[in-house]
Design a protein around this nucleic acid. Structure first.
Lengths: 204, 204, 204, 204
DNA sequence: AATGAATGAGGGTTCATTCAT
DNA sequence: TATGAATGAACCCTCATTCAT
């Protein structure tokens, strides 16, 4: 026995997943409502019971994506590790999530930047506050005394997050890195040590 | 007195620049031929004397962009600096070009990845060979003995190039970094030293 | 209460009839989908729920026309009359159908020959097998011992059918013959007796 | 040394022949001025020095065709043969001309009927007076005492002329008759004797 | 709530025609 | 006179959105 709300939630999920799947493949403009409806196993008209405009699907995807990432990221932030480990953890989690929700991440990475609707503004704020700031905090913990000013932390977190998303939509990166584990190591080492730091050969 | 070829070249440039401008603002799909024509100061039909399909405009932009970058990048590579300076130079040049041709770079960054026409394949190869490889070579020169394997150079160049392009289309980065000079320093320091290297305070 | 199929059938008919009407007047190229839609009392987009391309309308018209003619022609062929009466009957039926479906016949006569799509090939085969052959059979029955070889029957049926269709699109013929009854007599007499046979004045 | 008029005449011929060639292949609407110009070895703009509108090409073709046919047909009419031979001659000439100027004839047959411009009216009159009437006269000479009324001659000449043109554009007729000689015989016999007249086996 | 038939705005593209050279 | 670059009207077709069932 399903309550009305349960059905609504189920439909939303159907539509969301179909939209993610189709849009990750074709991008926003080349995806049609008809195809998304078919993928969702619903009628074309039914979609419009749950969204007002096609654009809303991107909002939906963005929102879902940001929430998903936010939750996990917070967990990591709460861990008791050393700063460097915390940074590695957050990269690790981010990449794992992106891998796990590859299609969602791809659509987020590719479509969101170009959207200018009002709703997206709200989500970008959420993204900024929950994700970028979490990264920035982790970054701030490891950079004092080094080459960066305090204000650089935000830029660096923009960069790091973007590099994580790169895994979702860059064919080059996937081809060159081979697997996500390699990519994670490269990213961690780059951010922690840079290219020129020499590894200490463990003799003492 | 203009020869036919001169006019043709001039028109191509007009159209190219109009396309870059409009597409950087609206993206491929939301740009209409009509608007591009208006921006170029030409009639709608005239556009089709110089391209066969709207899609060709992206190919054109991609090609022009890759050539533009390739040329300058090569110059840097030929310089006689030390490896670390060479890497800084190439980042410097890349960012300056991206700044100078901001709209072109934005369209390149945003649209090319999603295009799947045959012509784009050719251009991606060009991009890979001329730009990614140039970066990879510079990267290889500074990383021995450190945390990276030789094969990582390509991935790292993917990453570095992506970071440069981030300046072209990420509102966050622009807002957080303020100006391109800051961004350049952040990128250079990140790549050369990473977040955790401590600056030696010169009291030796 | 209309089932989905009934509506579909109704729409198809609407569109078909509108297309016949408009195309008979203007020909394929000078007919626009917009006008056909208006004539059908439907929206422009609706047409494309029932056809894929404008060209399909010609296929549809051709097919319908051939089927229509085939059915009636077969009935005549099955009659028990003498050969000469059978030939007259088939001319009679053909002309009556062409008169009755004047617009359809005109479009058939004018447009089909020039179309080269694959679907038309199939329909031409149908036309050839069902209509030309029926005429040829009737012709074969009356011509032995005369001026024609057996193999001429097909050519003669091409000619006779073309003559019938002439009624559909030749202004000259309509003007000169006046009414279809006259035209039918002329055709029958021409085919049966030729120009030079003298009528026997019934005095014996 | 060419006078201005000679060049003009030469250009007209070039354009005329190119138009005939292209239109016979593709029909009026699918022929472009560009292609006709190329076929004529002239620039696109040059065409418009000799015609006002694309439609004029059809007028030109029609006019030329009618004149061509008229001239030869008149010669035959002036011959001193017996009526039946005269009819055969006129069929013979007509078919030979159609064969010789196959492309011209095809375009005449296919395109003229649908054109409604004022100029075409004039040409149709010419056609009617010069060609249809010539045929009608020949027909009138052979039909007295037979199955036809005097007024039928015009209809019969419409029919006969149409049957001659059939050779120019019916694939069926060409395929079934094989060569034009056969077709000519079939047409002649049909018109002179009909299907049912028995050949007298010449034994007294 | 679910559906898909109906719709028309809007976009890409073609091409007859013009006109400056 | 010859040309072809320039132009925009006009057309086909797609697809987001609506709405009656």
């Amino acid at each position: 026995m399903s309550t009305k709300n349960e059905i609504t939630a189920k439909r939303r999920k159907q539509i969301f997943e179909a939209a993610v799947k189709v849009m990750a493949d074709k991008g926003f403009h080349d995806s049609t409502i008809k195809e998304i409806a078919r993928e969702a196993g619903l009628g074309k008209g039914t979609i419009y019971q749950y969204i007002r405009k096609k654009e809303d699907l991107v909002t939906l995807i963005a929102e879902e994506g940001v929430l998903l990432l936010s939750q996990k990221i917070e967990e990591v932030s709460a861990s008791a590790d050393f700063p460097e480990q915390k940074l590695q953890s957050i990269i690790d989690v981010m990449l794992r999530l992106i891998q796990e929700h590859a299609l969602l991440a791809k659509t987020m990475a590719v479509e969101i930047e170009r959207f200018k609707s009002e709703d997206i503004g709200r989500i970008k704020d959420l993204f900024s506050q929950n994700i970028l700031n979490a990264f920035a905090s982790r970054i701030e913990e490891v950079m004092p005394g080094g080459y960066f000013a305090e204000g650089d932390a935000l830029v660096l977190s923009d960069i790091l997050v973007a590099m994580c998303f790169l895994w979702a939509h860059s064919d080059y990166v996937k081809k060159h890195a081979g697997d996500i584990e390699s990519y994670k190591n490269i990213l961690s080492n780059l951010f922690l040590y840079g290219l020129t730091r020499k590894k200490e050969t463990g003799n003492g």
